[in-house]
Design a protein around this nucleic acid. Structure first.
Length: 564
RNA sequence: CGGGGCGUAGCGCAGUCUGGUAGCGCGUUCGGUUCGGGACCGAAAGGUCGGAGGUUCGAAUCCUCUCGCCCCGACCA
């Protein structure tokens, strides 16, 4: 590509709506433009990157035995109604009508459609297993699109669906996809963790996320520093801590203590610090009020812990719980004498001599213990914290932020039961097909790669996804221009993707743009080098510069591209 | 949906409080000088001041409504 003819509008300054690195750089380097909240145009370079990532995914899906299909993005409502998701998706679903007033929606995901496709064609166990995937735009009217390509309302997704005769067979399909995903993320050069996750509204029996580690990520991940345990904090657990700070001797009866204005754990630790030797946040029983449906629940965790609402919901058998912002006596709440349901975190239940709110303004109770002074269901309802012992090996957990770039689910017969997708087994019995589904956010991956790999000068593409392998920059003068033209032609003959910066710009401008674009190899042709018969090659990522003789330049460059 | 911020030229911003000829930098166009790290001189083009209504002799500026974007939260495969 000749830069002079490219539709490649770069920006010197960052548009103010961009506050995330990937968003800012992709805008500045002319890869994407915004059309509306969560709606983006991919300009030529953006498309090239998107397609290269899609190609990697395609290759790995095909290698794993999946077959590519393409389903419509505009769907009649009947399929989602069949599984109840027409209502369940709520406002996230983009709904529309056709000219005959028929009800439609834009596809947020395709479990129903593919299940319908499969149930129409698959009748026998002889036709299974099968794994079908597509790469296509998905539509979700997100409550809050954010950070450019990281959370869009229209985004490119690879979604695969496996169909098997049994849970055991489905497990094999799931494992094959997991392996394929590892290859994809490995080829993209990403730092990522495979983490246990909440299967959420997808339904099904288990799931794991491929989380690309990045500060701008929306998800919090707990990962062991010693073994490979990793989980979304939504579901992460810690090994049972040893019963904390058990004092010797008999526990005295609870004492009511006047604690004026001391509402937070921090204030309480300061308040009791003078009175109780060695008191820390882990001696307090923090009580938080939640609503589970109509029922009020008091969640009790240790002062140094936080409530995990997903775990709490599970513990009380609710779909979700809602935090009650301003209950009576906020700051002085406690489980002793509490009339509604109480759920106590296991770590809080192990506190032998605790301090908690007295349910009375400006008062707390000292010397409180679960089982003696109050009752309540004991369950794991807390968020894991940095340094907690790993549930698998006891090593220390570390917290990371991550971008969910892939998610694999064992769906079981959730959809095939609802939609009666059945096959005849060898005995002639009709049985539901066992499903799995596997997603990769392709456009999100573009942003994820940038989040992980960039520098102050701009984008830095790994060679596997770079829009061009090489950019050739003549630095002014007739001879360098002629040499650059010649190199451009010869490198292209070699089958390399090459950009030639043939613009009538000053060297500084061209070199800055080459860096902003993130093309892995920059070939500079200038009088200075040609004087000694050399051209200069600079690696974008390492910054390493080498001079090579013009005579062998094409081979040298092709070599470097092949090795990268 | 709750809280906060912002809409003025392609991009970044000033001007709004205190109403009175719509500005600056970058970019763009033309001419010239330059040419290995975002050059310099000169000239020029480019704006329904997000939109609608109102107040006023007069509105980017004041009032009302509305739309959009960003951030935090809620929410969310």
């Amino acid at each position: 590509m000749r830069y002079s003819a490219a539709f490649l509008p770069t920006l010197r300054e960052t548009p103010k709506e961009a506050t995330t690195v990937s968003h800012a750089l992709l805008l500045r380097a002319g890869y994407i433009r915004m059309v509306g909240a969560g709606l983006y145009e991919f300009l030529p370079l953006g498309v090239r990157v998107l397609q290269r990532i899609a190609t990697i995914i395609r290759e790995e899906m095909d290698r794993a035995g999946a077959q590519e299909v393409l389903m419509p993005a505009v769907l009649p409502s009947e399929y989602f109604k069949e599984t109840g998701r027409w209502d369940k998706f709520g406002p996230t679903l983009f709904r529309l009508h056709d000219r005959k007033h028929g009800e439609y929606h834009l596809a947020p995901t395709h479990e129903e459609i593919i299940t319908d496709m499969v149930r129409r064609e698959i009748k026998s166990y002889r036709q299974l297993p099968i794994n079908l995937y597509q790469i296509q735009m998905k539509y979700r009217d997100e409550p809050r699109p954010r950070a450019g390509l990281l959370r869009c309302r229209e985004f490119l997704m690879k979604d695969a669906y496996s169909f098997d005769v049994s849970p055991e067979a489905a497990r094999k399909s799931y494992d094959a996809m997991e392996a394929a995903y590892h290859r994809v993320f490995g080829r993209l050069g990403l730092q990522y963790r495979l983490v246990a996750a909440d299967s959420g509204a997808m339904g099904g029996s288990g799931s794991a996320e491929f989380q690309v580690l990045a500060q701008s990520g929306e998800d919090a991940i707990a990962a062991c520093t010693a073994c490979d345990y990793a989980a979304n904090v939504e579901v992460a657990t810690a090994a049972e801590a040893a019963a904390a700070s058990t004092p010797s001797g008999e526990l005295p009866a609870p004492v009511r203590v006047h604690t004026p204005g001391a509402k937070t754990i921090e204030q309480l630790v300061a308040f009791f610090g003078d009175r109780v030797e060695g008191v820390g946040a882990d001696r307090f029983l923090k009580s938080v009020v939640y609503l589970a449906g109509d029922e009020q629940v008091l969640a009790v965790v240790r002062g140094d812990h936080e409530v995990n609402e997903i775990k709490l919901a599970r513990a009380v058998g609710a779909d979700e719980v809602h935090w009650v912002a301003e209950p009576e006596h906020a700051g002085f709440l406690g489980p002793v004498g509490w009339k509604d349901k109480v759920v106590v975190d296991a770590a809080a239940a192990a506190v032998a001599d605790g301090i908690t709110g007295a349910n009375e303004e400006d008062h707390h109770l000292q010397h409180v213990r679960h089982g003696r002074d109050f009752e309540g269901t004991v369950a794991d309802i807390r968020l894991v914290a940095k340094g907690d012992p790993c549930p698998r090996c006891g090593g220390a957990l570390e917290l990371y932020r991550g971008i969910e770039a892939g998610h694999i689910f064992m769906l079981g017969t959730h959809y095939t039961d609802a939609m009666k997708a059945e096959f005849l087994d060898a005995e002639g019995t009709s049985r539901p097909i066992v499903m799995g589904c596997y997603g990769i956010g392709v456009s999100r991956l573009v942003a994820a790669v940038v989040e992980q790999l960039h520098d102050d000068d701009g984008l830095v593409w790994p060679s596997e996804v770079a829009p061009y392998a090489v950019i050739v920059t003549p630095l002014g003068g007739d001879e360098p221009t002629a040499v650059a033209e010649d190199l451009y032609a010869k490198l292209r003959e070699r089958g390399l993707t090459v950009m030639l910066d043939d613009r009538d710009e000053r060297p500084g401008v061209k070199l800055k743009d080459a860096e902003l674009l993130g093309i892995p190899l920059s070939v500079r042709v200038g009088k200075r080098g040609l004087k000694d018969g050399n051209i200069e090659i600079k690696a974008r990522r390492s910054g390493e510069t080498s001079f090579v003789p013009l005579a062998g330049a094409v081979d040298a460059i092709a070599d470097l591209v092949a090795k990268s």
